[in-house]
Amino acid sequence: MVSRRSLFLPALFIFLFVFIELASAQITVYSGRNRALVEPLVNQFEAETGINVRIRYGGTTQLAVAIMEEGRRSPADIFWSQDAGALGALHSGDILKVLPEHIAATLPPQFTNPANTWVATSGRARVLAYDKNNVDSSTLPESVFDLTRPEWRGKVGWAPANASFQSFVTAMRATEGDERTREWLRQMKANGAVAYNNNNSILQAIEAGEIQLGLTNHYYIDRAKSGNPNYGIEAHQFGAGDVGNLINVAGLGILKSSKQQDEAIAFVAFMLREYAQQFFMNEVFEYPVTTGIGDSDRMLESILGITPDINLDALNDLDETLRMLRQTDLL
């Protein structure tokens, strides 16, 4: 016969364990986004919900790879990615949970992902950066394909290793086909496009007069301008529908292995509501992803009209893009 005492201790442990689990509703976020872009929102979320959030900051790629390696034992409940590619990779690895329908209900189609395993939180537009003191804006090209013309020989900077650039190439493959994309990459290279390691290096090189144009994200420029009214670099947008105007997104996904699904969903929903969306617009200089919040309709209108018509799942196919970049010796 089993004595009562022998059952007492395990029962106590189980009780304590459950109690602690319940009392301290806590979620863990792996964030590829910088602390300054995340922490103010997380503080607000904690204050509103009483849910405790632990965050691991790191590079988007490294954290995504770590989550794949951790598998079902991952301590993470949520992954916050700087770009769609990493979320797509986790989606392909069958790591992300399908989100409830209502979460993405308010989002324009450009920001949703039909499989609904992750959701965009903010957007960054691809632009052509130029020095307004050096380049006459009326001479700027209407299409990203015009950058292969002789007048731009050796004057354009790009960042083939950068995730946003790669998403853009993936988008180009989706809209223009692999053949034309490969040809464009080859011609750009032949036209002396200068490779930098990230967006910021491109802008610095334009400032230094090393190059004149650069394919980058818009928000670095807006942020630099807000801190320095004399900042000489401007953002040029290509003609409506040109793939050079792609919007890249940062986004959130919830891991299947998470034991805190409700809290995680609350976190994701919070980032799509007014407080967070205002923060992205006003503090980070990104585009909102939800309509009907302050300036968001006006901002979205200005950009959604000119971005290429593409859904975010099309950006998942990073593997083939990397292969293409390797074939053209850009990686």
Binding site: G59, T61, M68, G85, A161, Q166, L318, D319, L331
Partner: peptide
């Protein structure tokens, strides 16, 4: 540098 590029972009371990 090539390795760095791989690790920066490739989720393929």
């Amino acid at each position: 540098y090539a390795l760095f590029l791989q690790y920066e972009s490739a989720f393929d371990r």
